[in-house]
């Protein structure tokens, strides 16, 4: 099966640092590994933030229904700083 342009674009986000805000306002910052039709996202090497409280949670799966915001590292912008 060939990817639609959008799926192709989504594929290009794999392996990028991704920030997901969950329904309880926790923020998960990790590397985008996998996603399915229900937006169940798997992040690796993830850090969890609850306010200023931070902890390492490793490999996590954030169910699509609990995602209120998803952000991916903007390579063009980030590049300016590296």
């Amino acid at each position: 099966m060939t990817d639609t342009p959008k799926i192709k674009q989504l594929r290009s986000y794999l392996n990028l640092r991704t920030r997901i805000t969950a329904s309880d306002n926790r923020v998960f910052n990790g590397i985008f590994m996998c996603i399915d039709k229900y937006k169940n996202i798997i992040l690796s090497q993830t850090e969890e933030f609850r306010g200023a409280e931070k902890r390492f949670v490793g490999l996590v799966m954030i169910p699509g229904k609990h995602i209120i915001k998803a952000e991916v590292e903007d390579l063009e912008l980030s590049d300016e700083y590296t």
């Binding site: 099966m1 639609t4 959008k6 799926i7 674009q9 989504l10 986000y13 640092r17 920030r19 996603i35 399915d36 039709k37 229900y38 937006k39 699509g64 995602i67 209120i68 915001k69 998803a70 952000e71 991916v72 590292e73 903007d74 912008l77 980030s78 700083y81």
Partner: peptide, 19 residues
């Protein structure tokens, strides 16, 4: 790193997923 919001994009892209 700077982030860009892809919340809406995710909805659109996954809508195009096969079962």
């Amino acid at each position: 790193p700077q982030y860009k919001d892809i919340t809406k994009f995710l909805d659109e892209a996954t809508d195009e997923f096969e079962i």
